[in-house]
Amino acid sequence: MIDITYYRPESIFEVIQLLQNTDGLLLAGGTDILPRIRKGHYPVKALIDLSRIESLKFVQEVNGWIEIGASATHTMVEQADILQKSVPALVSASHSIGCLQTRARGTIGGNISNASPAADTAPPLLVLNAEVVIQTATGQNAVPMTEFFIGPGKSILSANDILTSVRFKHPLGRMGSSFLKLGKRKGMAISVASVAAYVHLDNDGCLDEIRLAYGSLAPTPVRGYTVEKNLIGNHPTLDNMQKAAWKCEQDVAPISDLRASASYRLQAARVLTIRALQKALSQAEEVGV
């Protein structure tokens, strides 16, 4: 048993009030926060349980944007038809998290808010140019994902704010996306390194859009701008991709920890970059010109 004060708000409005008037921490799926509280990592006195707020549990498309509510579970993301069809990178990432039991509870909002460098949904959202929607006491802000993460476990989210959804433009045309994760085992793995890729091909088969993002390879999930710059406008030949992938060194800053050494992580990043690009390209090439 944990010693906490417990709140069960029924609306976002109530949540905002509780955030302002108590020292409560938001509880969504609980898959990360509850073990941490139990280990004493968080000196938490109060929890604000979001489970009664149904309006945060959705996956929808409106006016060409796909929006996912913060309380959508990883299972919901994995199973949403529109995501399976249009953004396999995000579906793979959600599927790679923990096990069935974890995915049935854990939420996309929690995964992002925790701001772990290893957050699996972050690299796909970065390559989709996603925005994070944040509700504050005074209004709603949409912030690009690229500006959201500040450091390990740190984001721009202040203690009085709540992340309510993530959204991105529905990718169309000759595009493809992918997510690859290297873990130490098949199930329940925290990533050693992960890469997400998004590509769009023009009529000549050149890359007119390319975005890459890395997980577990820097203090925060990061974009692979250098690799992107080396590939944009070019044909995605293996040679071009290999040359560009080797430059990911300039985008990442891996550390050595209990899961892998820095040099191993860098090597993994290079190889995963090429494989992620190939996977995204194979999806793009299925779409006719």
């Binding site: 509880l27 898959t31 349980d49």
Partner: peptide
């Protein structure tokens, strides 16, 4: 099994099953 899905009951607070 919570609402048809397998979950770890150690990661669910009692208030969340209301």
């Amino acid at each position: 099994i919570l609402n048809g899905e397998a979950v770890n009951s150690c990661l669910v607070l009692i208030g969340q099953v209301d």
